[in-house]
Design a protein around this nucleic acid. Structure first.
Lengths: 140, 140
DNA sequence: TATTGTTATACTCTATAACTATA
DNA sequence: TATAGTTATAGAGTATAACAATA
């Protein structure tokens, strides 16, 4: 078991998420909030339903995530003029700055995590994970 | 963000865990149960406190995990004769068989997950993850 | 008094279901 | 009637705290 990619991805993923979540707390964010910001940064402004579908979470969860992101000024919520049922989420300047800080934190964490690897190995690892991420519909 | 190893390990880890957990359900096991079995298979019979410390979970959780593993006959719980406070957990023949089935499921899942990689790339990925796992005190 | 296992309780995360407003 | 968002409720997973037996 412990030698499988399945086991190693699962355990390392949990460990990385736990430690990175702790650092994210300084920015008043949790991983799913970063997921929303990342999705918004990657595409055009989107509705909550679209984002929920994209992230594979319940629409009701996206309400709570958007509530918080709006409260800290990271996103703006505007009602769609064409279809007044839809709430369109837009990344604010503050949201973009926050996301950039998340990226910096992640890069910092990357450096610590992969510190013992050669630059070549770091590149290989990142590439291989990128292939798997892309194949499984995760952001790239 | 999405290009960092941190983000990719976190998201892929969650995805792999979710999908693998579903298959594990056929064996009436959850990931943490496999963690206990794996720890027991790796070393000598251990107490619940030792295992909880090793896995980084609360002792109270290990009670529930051991309850279930005992109920399905995967482990035996015997009171330590030298220190009657300790419950020593031992892998049974059935537990070993179950763990082997978990390994087979994981290898099967590995094949699907890394199907698009070359054999060389699969080896590289496994090795690199193994290095990170070892450095962070995870089973190898 | 300290430690092992256990039980009771509470907290976090997230989903499902019911509800409101709009289409 | 169907859909976007929201609110209410419930479930899974896990930790903390209180407790019992043994050291």
């Amino acid at each position: 078991m412990p030698a499988t990619v399945t086991f190693r991805l699962g355990t390392l993923g949990a460990l990385v998420t736990e430690r990175f979540t702790a650092r994210l707390a300084d920015l008043d964010l949790k991983p799913k909030h970063v997921g929303v910001l990342t999705a918004l940064a990657a595409g055009p402004p989107a509705s909550q339903q679209e984002l929920a579908g994209l992230m594979g979470v319940a629409p009701s969860l996206l309400v709570a995530l958007a509530d918080h992101l709006e409260a800290i000024g990271a996103i703006a919520r505007t009602r769609d003029a064409g279809d007044r049922r839809r709430m369109v989420l837009t990344l604010t300047a503050r949201g973009r700055k926050l996301l950039a800080k998340c990226g910096a934190l992640a890069q910092e964490f990357d450096a610590e995590l992969t510190g013992s690897l050669t630059a070549d190995q770091r590149g290989q690892l990142s590439d291989l994970l990128g292939v798997l991420a892309a194949e499984n519909g995760l952001p790239t």
